[in-house]
């Protein structure tokens, strides 16, 4: 029985698509949901800010897409472990809080030696963190290596016109 070429062609097309679909099922299956909006009520404590800051770092802020925490070796972007204490000594005459705020709002001003510029402006879309969310991220950063001292009332150069706060 001679199978007509058309049937074989159909079988080939279907089979090829099936093969590639099968390969697609073999790789890790990950569904990525849009980031959940984190509600920051006005009376949260610093501890709660640290937790929210960590959530933002893993989700909406996309921080951990590029930065590592606790890794050494040939890194593309500065590792964040211990940033809570190293932020005070990075730039002379700049307080730790101001340094963290500058790194978040205007990352291109100071580049950690040994790395290249590349951090996007996270206060603007697509990441678009609000000032309160930034304070939570600062709290989380401070908690890694030191004590978190910021509250929602904290003022730095980027969230008010008033001069530098604590």
């Amino acid at each position: 029985m001679k199978i007509p070429a058309e049937i074989k062609i159909v079988a080939l097309v279907v089979g090829t698509c099936a093969f590639y679909t099968y390969v697609g099922q073999l790789v890790p299956q990950k569904e990525v949901q849009p980031p959940a909006e984190v509600l920051i009520s006005s009376d949260i404590t610093t501890e709660e800010m640290i937790a929210i800051g960590e959530e933002i770092a893993q989700g909406k802020g996309l921080c951990l897409t590029c930065h590592t925490v606790g890794e050494s070796g040939a890194l593309r972007f500065p590792d964040l472990a211990g940033i809570g204490s190293s932020c005070t000594t990075r730039i002379p005459d700049k307080s730790g809080l101001e340094y963290l705020a500058q790194s978040l709002y205007e990352p291109d001003i100071y580049i950690v030696p040994g790395f290249n510029p590349g951090m996007p402006n996270i206060a603007r879309p697509p990441i678009g963190l609000t000032n309160d969310e930034m304070l939570c991220v600062i709290a989380w950063l401070q908690s890694m290596g030191s004590e978190a001292t910021v509250t929602l009332e904290t003022r730095h150069s980027y969230n008010t016109d008033a001069p530098e706060a604590e």
Binding site: Y20, T21, V23, G24, Q25, Q29, E31, V32
Partner: peptide, 11 residues
């Protein structure tokens, strides 16, 4: 708005 799995996309 979510990103589907690769398995779904290949289908």
């Amino acid at each position: 708005a979510f990103t589907p799995t690769l398995g779904f996309a290949t289908q």
